[in-house]
């Protein structure tokens, strides 16, 4: 069995979500801040007339914020039927990956990340971290 994964880059590491979750990928758009929102919430964007919540994955994954001049990209995923936009550094390719390349995360991974990272796909040249989208946006 192989599956299609949409990949993206965050702080140099490659992450992946199942392509069925992904609605589209696009450049970042002006966001409206939401005061008092949970820290991971980066604001609201107007996606063709629809108000869509944006989640900064860097915050969710405990990474330092992106450099000020760098422009993040948006991966719009569907969670519980609701579109949610994820802020990522770069967008990668869609890859066909065999299921047998998958391995659970190492025991040494911190508990807060164990919740978000399902495991890793061992590609030839690098590791691809499988992100649990539902949990990542719930943070």
């Amino acid at each position: 069995m192989s599956r299609q994964l949409a990949t993206f880059v965050l702080a140099g590491a490659h992450y992946a979500v199942d392509v069925v979750h992904v609605q589209e990928a696009l450049r970042s758009q002006p966001r409206t801040a939401v005061p008092l929102a949970p820290s991971g919430v980066a604001g609201l964007v107007n996606l063709r007339g629809q108000v869509v919540l944006t989640v900064d994955l860097r915050v969710a994954l405990g990474l330092p914020p992106l450099a000020r001049d760098a422009e993040p990209m948006m991966v719009v995923v569907t969670v519980d039927g609701e579109p949610i936009s994820l802020l990522v550094d770069e967008i990668g390719d869609v890859l066909d990956v065999d299921d047998d390349r998958f391995e659970a995360p190492p025991d040494t991974l911190g508990p807060e990340l164990r919740d978000l990272i399902l495991g890793a796909y061992k590609l030839d040249d690098r590791l691809l971290l499988a992100l649990d989208v539902d949990r990542a946006v719930a943070a």
């Binding site: 939401v34 929102a37 949970p38 919430v41 629809q50 108000v51 869509v52 919540l53 609701e82 949610i84 946006v137 719930a138």
Partner: peptide, 8 residues
């Protein structure tokens, strides 16, 4: 009025 995400 547009609905707001349940998370907010």
């Amino acid at each position: 009025v547009k609905p707001l995400s349940g998370r907010l």
